[in-house]
């Protein structure tokens, strides 16, 4: 069991910004921060559970039919998440809409099953699932935060007690950059963020070479 398996997903091998997997939900649900958190929680649950189960069953599943087996395992956990959210968080269920069952075809989950869980121990796969899930959630929250603040001038989080869960940003609330909340804003922002992360890794590589 290595701590490295947990931390690599958060920044160094971030599934969204570095490996570029799971783009559909990343762009589709990031109109509000709370949707990003709901989606992230769903993905962490599905990814961790499917990683554990696939790592535990890796010697039983025949090699030739492994992909359909993985898909059925993943789809079952997604159905659990779907039913759970439908019962206990109907507003998030409605906001996520069709993107919730689409977790099944999220490349991150099948990708980790194939690339990691099918080759490593249960404990390592558990850490890998949590780490990758957290990295995905952080990336989603970052994108949602930028899009919601610029596009609507608000930050929507959980409603607790008298607080209704909506934080307003002065100025932007009255004059929002509306395109950020719409479809083109998501694609443009993703392009600029990816370029930013490319620049960071370029700088890092240059520094390492200079140090040598």
């Amino acid at each position: 069991m290595k701590v490295k398996e947990l931390t690599k997903g958060i920044l160094r091998e971030n599934p969204v910004f570095i490996i570029m997997l799971g783009m559909c939900p990343t762009l589709g649900v990031t109109t509000q921060v709370i949707n990003a958190l709901g989606m992230g929680a769903g993905v962490i649950f599905v990814l961790t559970c499917s990683n554990i189960l696939i790592a535990a069953l890796k010697n039983i599943i025949p090699d030739s039919v492994r992909i359909p087996c993985y898909i059925v395992i993943i789809a079952s956990f997604v159905t659990i998440v779907e039913m759970f959210l439908h019962a206990f968080a109907p507003s998030i269920y409605a906001a996520l809409g069709v993107y919730l069952p689409l977790i099944v075809v999220n490349c991150i989950i099948l990708g980790r099953a194939e690339a990691f869980a099918s080759k490593n121990s249960v404990a390592d796969s558990l850490l890998d699932g949590i780490g990758m899930g957290l990295g995905f959630t952080l990336a989603l929250t970052l994108i949602a935060l930028i899009r919601e603040v610029l596009g609507k001038g608000t930050i929507t989080v959980f409603a607790i007690g008298g607080f209704n869960g909506v934080i307003s940003v002065p100025l932007l609330k009255d004059w929002p950059v509306r395109v950020m909340a719409l479809a083109p804003g998501a694609l443009l922002l993703m392009g600029y963020l990816k370029a930013f992360f490319n620049r960071l890794s370029e700088k890092k590589a240059q520094n390492q070479e200079a140090a040598k």
């Binding site: 804003g185 998501a186 694609l187 443009l188 392009g191 600029y192 990816k194 370029a195």
Partner: peptide
């Protein structure tokens, strides 16, 4: 990839 995303936007 980044310029592809911006084009798509």
């Amino acid at each position: 990839v980044p310029i592809a995303f911006i084009t798509a936007g």
